[in-house]
């Protein structure tokens, strides 16, 4: 088994927030914590794009690098998880993460008063007995141990959000792009940082 990854197809995401709701319900995530959220770029402007964002389970995760209590670990399948019993709520991981994945139940509070960090587990639970009450209370349900994928992806109505082994996910997206003949350009640096928008403007003006 390779690495577990999420991929959100910006051409398909309709900002329904079904993934957010599914996650919140499945894991009974407390108030103030959103393990997943939908981000819309150029909201209200024709050609707006939305992507669903959560922990991306980075191959070289910065949260793991900065944690002073070394409470993060990576499973054999590439899922980044953490031990809440070791977490001191310092918030370093929050500042290190480029996706804003680590969340704190008490929100922005003083050092030590934020509570234990909570983040997407790829529906893989945490370091407690599989499917135990302790695991559910701390980390949510463990769907991966039941041979299921994260609920956010399985619930996605347009299948914009796909999850699973990186190879499989990449192949699904590649096939889509080839069939529809578009889509690769809306994913990546240009789309995230404005290059794509400028390119579109130039196209509209007939310069390129």
């Amino acid at each position: 088994m390779g690495r577990m990854k999420f991929l959100c197809d910006a051409e398909r995401c309709i900002e329904c927030n079904g993934c957010v709701t599914a996650c919140k319900n499945e894991h009974e995530v407390p108030w103030g914590v959103n393990r997943r959220r939908v981000v819309t770029m150029n909201d209200g402007v024709p050609g707006e794009r939305s992507i669903s964002v959560a922990c991306m389970h980075c191959s070289d995760a910065p949260c793991m690098a900065v944690c002073p209590t070394d409470c993060f670990y990576k499973t054999e399948d590439g899922v980044v998880l953490h031990d809440k019993d070791k977490c001191i709520g310092c918030g370093y991981c929050f500042y290190a993460c480029p996706f804003g994945a680590p969340q704190f139940p008490n929100g922005p509070a003083a050092f030590g008063a934020r509570g234990k960090m909570d983040k997407c587990t790829f529906c893989a639970g945490g370091p407690e007995e599989t499917n135990s009450a302790a695991e559910y209370e701390k980390y949510g349900s463990n769907r991966l141990a039941d041979g299921k994928l994260p609920l956010c992806a399985e619930m996605c109505s347009t299948k914009a959000l796909i999850a699973g082994d990186a190879d499989v996910v990449a192949n699904i997206f590649r096939e889509r792009v080839l069939r529809r003949g578009t889509g690769a350009e809306v994913w990546g640096w240009d789309a995230a940082y404005g290059g794509g928008e400028r390119k579109q403007e130039r196209k509209r003006e007939g310069q390129s």
Partner: peptide, 15 residues
């Protein structure tokens, strides 16, 4: 750094 938390069962071991 080395992970200092509890060990976790692999997904196919439990469940």
């Amino acid at each position: 750094g080395q992970y200092r938390g509890k060990t976790d069962a692999r997904p196919w071991e439990g469940g």
